[in-house]
Design a protein around this nucleic acid. Sequence first.
DNA 1: CAAAGTACTTTGTATTTCAAAGTAAATATA
DNA 2: TATATTTACTTTGAAATACAAAGTACTTTG
Lengths: 103, 103
Amino acid sequence: MTPDRFEPLDPVIHSQVRLAVLSVLIAVKEADFNYLKKETETTDGNLSTHLAKLEEAGYIRMKKSFRGKKPLTTCSIMEKGKTAFSLYLKALESYFPGGIKPV
Amino acid sequence: MTPDRFEPLDPVIHSQVRLAVLSVLIAVKEADFNYLKKETETTDGNLSTHLAKLEEAGYIRMKKSFRGKKPLTTCSIMEKGKTAFSLYLKALESYFPGGIKPV
DNA sequence: CAAAGTACTTTGTATTTCAAAGTAAATATA
DNA sequence: TATATTTACTTTGAAATACAAAGTACTTTG
């Protein structure tokens, strides 16, 4: 039983927006909705659904509070999310055996 | 005008099957349908549509011939595909500040 | 107080993915 | 020799996904 050449890519992470969200949250530990919207360059609706998916998977946590009188959603990564992110990166590497080649 | 933190991921490549196909074709220069099916661990129908997409984008070339009496589809990567693959990897790196290491 | 803005969420549509079924020819079986 | 099975794909329809327009619930501004 030879091991698979290509490791499967976690579908929860394999999306540009969700990958970007996790990348931010690994770097900063906490980010609000608007910050994530700017970083990921997506629309409100799109970000909202992607965040919901990440939360549902237990990869991030969302805290709803208020900044002054306005609602504020703050996201942070959970252990499960960190692990999944690492595994995703590891899986990705199986698709790039040579590492980085110049274009 | 500060550059985007995250570079966009080419949607033609951002699919597990198509990424695997390109990865194979970069390594071996030519691969037939069945070999790709084995490597990518997907179904006939699925592979067929993914290959069509890659060909349509000008990333790969498909040659139809015969091996003995049976049809044989042979795929190879084109320059445009190589470039796109490199750019995809480069874009990916923007999501992993720590870097993607060769396996 | 009406109009515009903020911070989201919900919803409908468009796109994408995927595998079941279809096709066509070759080969094995009875 | 009929027929069933296999091989090598492609087409098609259904399910999942992505996306943004519209909706909600406020707040701020003119």
